[in-house]
Structure formats: structure tokens, C-alpha cells
Design a protein around this nucleic acid. Structure first.
Ligand code: MN
Ligand code: MN
Ligand code: ZN
Ligand code: ZN
Lengths: 154, 154
DNA sequence: ATCATTATTTGGACATAGTCCAAAATTGTG
DNA sequence: CACAATTTTGGACTATGTCCAAATAATGAT
């Protein structure tokens, strides 16, 4: 009924547990975190939590619409608590950092397919690939030798 | 030098092997195929091919720009030979079928991010999610009970 | 507060997709 | 044909995630 984390869980029919509260806090603190990274963080906060519980919690949060899962190529799934706005993502090919981008047309689905092939489209998922500021060649200055982890496509 | 499959491989510095020719033909015949499915098809054509060789060939083809890899959520990587046009994809949440969609603005990157966060963007990857014609509720008629394999997001 | 019921958590096994590696086979070259 | 370089093979291994049944914890009703 209130808007505390506890109330948020209860209002979605979920019982309140230390594990869920911790995972929920974790994806708020660290948007675009992997399940295993979230487990690490959660363990620092509450001492122990099973891997399965982290996965269960994340899956439940996604089901209930309290979290969103994205899955950039060559990355394990990433979780965030920013939901409902169908925002998009910028991914750095070199360091893998993920940044949010507002949906340019505001609402989901935000894009018309040039031909919808008679599909009923409910979502347009957009991933922008490129180089983040830190990973960009620094023109004249001595350039840090980056080993790209994700190669640009043809 | 010519435009046979053999010439295509040679012109990219690759030696010509039965395995490569077969995998190349396979992704032409079956766009959006998985590595394991491609292995199955290839085996029917030439009797035997190792799983590793299929993966190696597909990776090499992608590196050389002769194939493209896409990775819809909850799916293994899919390969196709349609390259260089940065086209997009429609994915059915129910049956998983993947269809091509032309890039609406013609050239890559085809979309401006609303804020590029100072990234240098080289590609905009778009995946449209929805229901294919076969998986859509058939209004009045008796409706096949579909068990969606991929749930719609909040 | 205590109990009973239900939901959650745990750890271990299992599944899938993919890579690493060294030996064997094949390809391209002279 | 023979040699060197490349590719293929099969088996082990890794990473990410799910399945399962037993143990534990949370909720609702006395
Ligand atoms: Mn985000
Ligand atoms: Mn395609
Ligand atoms: Zn970067
Ligand atoms: Zn379908």
C-alpha cells in the first residue's frame, strides 16, 4: 500500500524476504547488472544468498513488471529497475558499458517497422552499438591500446 | 575472383573446404538458422562435420563479413547471409519465427539516439517483438491454444 | 504468541550454447 | 609429389541458467 520496497513487493502479491529486498535494492543501485554480479553485491549486504535465489528473485521481478531484463549480444542478461518507458540502450563495443537512451518517440512500440509482415508488434527493442567516450581514439594524444571485446559488424 | 562460393571464400583469404562450402550454402538456404541446426543440415549434405567446424566456419564468415549473427533474447545465435544492409528483425513471441524487415531509413546507423551520451555510434540494432500471423488470436474462430515461449514485457 | 499452510530458499544436479586445445587430416604452393 | 600452413576433429572445459526435492521462513488464522 505504501511505496516502500516492502509495500512494492506486497502490492504485487510477493512475500517480503531479505533476499528479495536486497536484490531489489541492488538493481536500483547498479542498473544493468548481471545476475552473478547482483549475487556478489547482495552477499556483501546480507552475508549469504544462494545463486538460485538471485535468479528466482530477478525472474519474479521481471514477471511482475518491477524489473527489466536486457540481453546485449555476447553478454549475460542484465537487469535494471527502470521499467515501463521502453527506453533503449547504448553499448560500447570496447568496454561493454551500457547506457540508457530515452525512447525517441516516447511510447512503446516507438517505431514503425517498414513492413510489419502482418505481425502484431508490441515492442521495438533498440540497441545502439559504438564506442563510449573513454574508449574512443584520442586523436593526437597517445592512444591507449584497446582490445575490443566486441567487434564491429560489417 | 569469380562469384562462385569458392571464389567468394578465396577472395577473402579463406581456403576452400567441403565444410565451409556446405555451411555457407546452409545459411543461404535457411536464413536465421542456429549453429546446431546448421550442423544438422550440413551433415545431411556431406555425411559428417564436427560441431566445432560449424562454429569455426560461422565465426569466420561473420568476421569476414560474409555472414551476420543475431541473438534475439532467449534464443541461441542465428546466422544469415544477408549482410551489409543493416536490416532489422521481427520476432514472434509465441513461435519464435524471425522475419527480416528492411531498414526504414536505408543506411546504417539508421537511427539517431535521442542522446548519444557522446558515444560514436556505428550501428542501430532493432528487434520488433510481437505475434506472427499464425500465432495471432483468430477473433471468432476456435483459437488454437498457444503457449507463448516468450512473454510480453511490462 | 503459536500453529498450520504456503511460499521461498538452498545446494546440487542438470541443460544448453559455446570455446579451448592438441592431434590428425586436408589444402594450397612450389 | 612434398612441404608448410590451415583446417578439422573430438574431447574436455566454461559460462549462464534451470530443475528438483528437502529445509527454512513468511503469512494468515487461531
Ligand atoms: Mn536501461
Ligand atoms: Mn535477417
Ligand atoms: Zn567503452
Ligand atoms: Zn508465431
Amino acid at each position: 500500500m505504501d511505496n516502500s520496497p516492502e509495500g512494492l513487493l506486497r502490492s504485487h502479491g510477493l512475500s517480503v524476504t531479505a533476499q528479495r529486498l536486497t536484490v531489489l535494492q541492488t538493481i536500483t543501485d547498479y542498473p544493468h547488472i548481471t545476475a552473478d554480479q547482483a549475487a556478489e553485491v547482495a552477499r556483501k549486504k546480507i552475508g549469504a544468498i544462494s545463486r538460485q535465489s538471485v535468479y528466482d528473485t530477478l525472474n519474479t521481478l521481471v514477471e511482475k513488471g518491477l524489473a527489466r531484463r536486457i540481453q546485449p549480444m555476447d553478454s549475460p542478461a542484465l537487469f535494471e529497475d527502470r521499467v515501463g518507458d521502453n527506453h533503449h540502450h547504448l553499448v560500447c563495443r570496447s568496454c561493454g558499458i551500457v547506457e540508457d537512451v530515452d525512447c525517441s518517440t516516447g511510447y512503446r512500440p516507438c517505431l514503425q517497422a517498414s513492413d510489419d509482415n502482418n505481425f502484431i508488434i508490441d515492442e521495438a527493442e533498440v540497441t545502439y552499438w559504438g564506442l563510449c567516450p573513454k574508449c574512443q581514439p584520442k586523436s593526437t594524444k597517445s592512444q591507449a591500446k584497446q582490445t575490443p571485446t566486441r567487434k564491429a559488424k560489417s
